[in-house]
Write a protein that binds this DNA or RNA. Sequence first.
DNA 1: ACAGCAGAGCGTCAACGAGT
DNA 2: ACTCGTTGACGCTCTGCTGT
Length: 244
Amino acid sequence: MVATIAETDESAESEGVIDSHKRREILSRRPSYRKILNELSSDVPGIPKIEEEKSEEEGTPPNIAAMAVPTSIYQTSTGQYIAIAQGGTIQISNPGSDGVQGLQALTMTDSGAPPPGATIVQYVAQSADGTQQFFVPGSQVVVQAATGDMPTYQIRAPTTALPQGVVMAASPGSLHSPQQLAEEATRKRELRLMKNREAAKECRRRKKEYVKCLESRVAVLEVQNKKLIEELETLKDICSPKTD
DNA sequence: ACAGCAGAGCGTCAACGAGT
DNA sequence: ACTCGTTGACGCTCTGCTGT
């Protein structure tokens, strides 16, 4: 979807602005849904906790694998070594000081046994999203996404639209020209948007869970309330029998 | 079949708090 | 001071329902 520019900020006038600011002030002091729910759940047994962010062991997407013993080592034309672990993790060692700019092809060597002939792996210099990609065996794509001060590398399926997680950071690239700086800014923005997109999804999921939790709690309390009212009526009857 | 509506879901922006 | 995660607000799209 194309980015939508919110025109509310420009068009909103005094009243609306004050209103929204007040609201914001009130709402912004609310702790996160996770906090609220976890506090709730510690008070009341039976209310499930919202699970903390899973670390690698569970959260590893299918396209990105966990760190493992290197199984394949690739040497680039610029002398860099790229080790691909069993799970797909990449390590890039940089004997010289050059980045991966200018990389044309990768020479594949097998860490287990010397290859009968070096395999040239196709390399794509620049993809549409500004990342650099090269292809390795197993239908995977190694992507250079220089989103921070340092370029980072990832393995993903060729069709994967967005990076699933940073695997490892490599040596700092050389960003000099205005064009490179602009590209860098674009990459940073893309990364920020991507992260926020995921965060928003997660936030909504937590919110739904929180609301569900509150609803079930309401149901429980309503039942309790009903029981207490009935009990009260019974006690009333016992304590003040009718004198007819 | 079509238009109109409501609700859900999504992407983005902006503001804030916490951590470094 | 800066970065990053969180979340409300807003606008947009999609989908299912309902009335004509």
